[in-house]
């Protein structure tokens, strides 16, 4: 018996809070302040091409860094015993239990020109040393309000979303399959290349998706750590709704275009991961 009625609450939720808003976004994107149907919003958007490229560039960099850090950790973790796994899982999840803004503010106080890191380096005399050797006038490392700080914020906040799906997939690989590969003559590197990595691809795709999408649309991180120096799509959209530039029509149009680009990216990735099992796609 199919219990279709069990899906009713979710379908209702989807209809009210996803489908209807989506229609509103599309509708807003296609009209101007006077309520006339127009494509002007999309034309205006070309002024902000820079925000698009910066956003995608930083999100891609952050995703790649998350992957480079997250994959080896997942691989190591999957091989450990239950006790280590439990502790490591808590360590990975712990930052996520703290408020997102709080975490980002914490990074601010670390990275600021007079922040903890720079103060520390100053007190151990690093800047004096560098100034003496190179004849510079350095009194701090500029870290906050740089694209690097924004990427750092993204990596810090989204890394668990890379580790968890990859770890879950690798952990589920039957150890007998790995033994079978060794048995057939594959040394460890080959076992990884031919068996573990291909079998872990669904997790990698999920991880990329779960890091890239929030990273490309973030606004709080760039605002706090980028100090408005790096205008990202998220900031741009926020400005259209809450800023002085109040223009929800343009904001909707930007959202829509961003969504389409993200969907295309995911579809391309989906294509590469085809036949590798099911991953989480948004």
């Amino acid at each position: 018996m199919k219990k279709k009625y069990l899906a009713i609450p979710y379908v209702g939720w989807m209809a009210i809070f996803v489908i209807v808003p989506l229609i509103l976004v599309v509708g807003y994107a296609l009209i101007n302040r006077d309520g006339q149907v127009t494509l002007d919003n999309f034309r205006t958007m070309t002024q902000y091409l820079g925000a698009f490229t910066t956003s995608f560039r930083l999100a891609i960099i952050a995703t790649v860094i998350c992957l480079v850090i997250g994959y080896p950790v997942s691989l190591w973790l999957a091989r450990e015993g239950a006790a280590v796994k439990r502790i490591a899982m808590i360590a990975i999840m712990l930052p996520m239990w703290m408020n997102f803004l709080l975490r980002t503010y914490a990074w601010m106080s670390l990275l600021e020109n007079t922040g903890i890191i720079n103060t520390l380096l100053k007190n151990i005399g690093l800047f004096d040393l560098i100034n003496r050797v190179f004849g510079t006038q350095l009194s701090y490392f500029p870290m906050i309000n740089t694209p690097g700080a924004v990427v750092l914020g993204m990596v810090y906040n989204y890394l668990p979303f890379m580790i968890l799906p990859i770890y879950t997939v690798i952990d589920k690989i039957d150890p007998k399959v790995i033994e079978a590969a060794e048995d057939l003559g594959a040394p460890p590197v080959m076992v990884f290349r031919k068996v573990i990595f291909p079998l872990s691809l669904p997790g990698v795709l999920s991880g990329i998706t779960m890091v890239f999408i929030p990273a490309v649309s973030t606004f709080a991180i760039s605002k706090l750590l980028g100090g408005g120096m790096t205008l990202l799509l998220g900031d741009l959209i926020e400005m259209q709704f809450y800023g002085s530039a109040y223009n929800p029509y343009l904001g909707s149009a930007i959202s829509l275009v961003m969504m389409v680009i993200v969907l295309i990216c995911m579809a391309v990735m989906n294509h590469f991961g085809e036949g590798e099992g099911e991953a989480v796609y948004f």
Binding site: K176, V177, P198
Partner: peptide
């Protein structure tokens, strides 16, 4: 030859 075959599903 493993008990549960351990074939490469990919």
């Amino acid at each position: 030859v493993f008990q549960k075959y351990a074939l490469f599903t990919h």
